[in-house]
Nucleic acid binder design. Structure first.
Lengths: 207, 207
DNA sequence: ATTAATATGTGAAATTAGTAACAAATTAAT
DNA sequence: ATTAATTTGTTACTAATTTCACATATTAAT
């Protein structure tokens, strides 16, 4: 029952709860969470219920215990190391991003084939892809962010997997063909923008 | 029946078809498209069928005509102008991105409240948010990319809408509360990374 | 020409996801 | 203490999505 959509929602609850906690709140209700997440109150209760998370019949849910329960689901206790591959526009943005710690993650290295880009200095070292295996072994990395151009995405992904990566967050607009044990999560910014345009366009289409 | 998930799939078909066309292919089959997109062949045929796109009972689908049909669905003929708000890490990546044209879009301006950032020079001008309305009117902009920090996202989004924006591609990890006519599409990179971690973790969890 | 092979197209069945309705518990009010 | 109000938790129902099964068209082979 570890459903995909359900996991997505639980993530959203978790984010919303962190916000609410930040605002100083101690408890919340399915309908307040609904406001924060856009998910219907019943579905929220059902999700919680199915994951064994229980509230009080009139007191709602205690934010801290909710977050604890969700941490059990999502939080590996050990900090997880990730690597970034590709120092293009997106790659450069992601290496400068500072919020990994907040999600209990740590970016340990960046890789790029371009020697010029490797001279750049960030808070994490930049290597040639030849050093990948070494880094993967040294830091026990299993997840990589792939931010290389479309034309080299498949090949690079394959190389990552050969060197011990088993999860890829892929920014290239291609379906990566990889062994079945590898998990891929795709982010395609242009496609999201296009769809937004489409829906706007449809709505405002001349009669 | 202009369903959301269906539109998402049609977009994926379109991308795959563009790739196949680029590779010099003239026709394709539901099962080949399935390989490229990860969608089952039946579902592909059904999607096409429901949108009035028809193939030949043994000859498969003609890539060019398929793309034409999809263009009718997705392609506004007029190039669509977009603006970008926020010149942080992601914003800087998006302003440097060169592929908008390819999707028949055009980034006409960037906005940031930080005067220092406004001194940077890109291929598009950087303005203070005060100029937003002017730009929106001059370039007939209805869609904005919102790449500001979480704490100012809601407020900024509201301001965008007040000044004529009706579609937002939101990178901030909050559910924007906006009037019903406004369309929002969210991209949350950390949440995608976390989910990848979660699924990897679940799979490799000690027994 | 006939037969075999291959792909599409589609109604029915199965699966999955989400909503509605309401009982049970808890708190607040009188 | 009793009653009323509120909120969770769950079962039954409804809706949406996907797959299955197979008829139908088209091409290729003999």
């Amino acid at each position: 029952m570890n459903n995909l959509v359900q996991i997505k929602r639980l993530q959203r609850y978790r984010m919303a709860l962190l916000r609410l906690k930040n605002m100083g709140l101690k408890k919340t209700f399915s309908h307040s969470l609904s406001e924060e997440t856009g998910v219907s109150p019943v579905l929220i209760r059902k999700d919680f219920s199915q994951f064994g998370i229980r509230g009080k019949r009139r007191g709602g849910y205690d934010i801290d215990s909710l977050l604890d329960e969700l941490k059990l689901l999502f939080g590996r206790e050990k900090e997880q190391n990730v690597v970034l591959v590709g120092l293009g526009n997106i790659g450069a943005a992601l290496v400068k991003y500072e919020g990994y710690r907040q999600s209990n993650m740590n970016m340990v290295a960046v890789f790029d084939i371009d020697p010029v880009k490797r001279t750049r200095r960030y808070s994490v070292p930049v290597y040639s892809l030849e050093s990948l295996r070494e880094v993967v072994n040294a830091f026990d990395v299993s997840v990589a962010i792939l931010a290389v151009p479309e034309f080299s995405a498949q090949e690079t992904a394959h190389y990552l997997v050969e060197n011990g990566i088993s999860g890829i967050l892929n920014f290239a607009p291609v379906l990566l063909k990889l062994p079945g044990h590898v998990l891929v999560n795709n982010i395609n910014i242009m496609i999201e923008l296009e769809r937004l345009m489409y829906h706007i366009g449809v709505r405002t289409k001349p009669i």
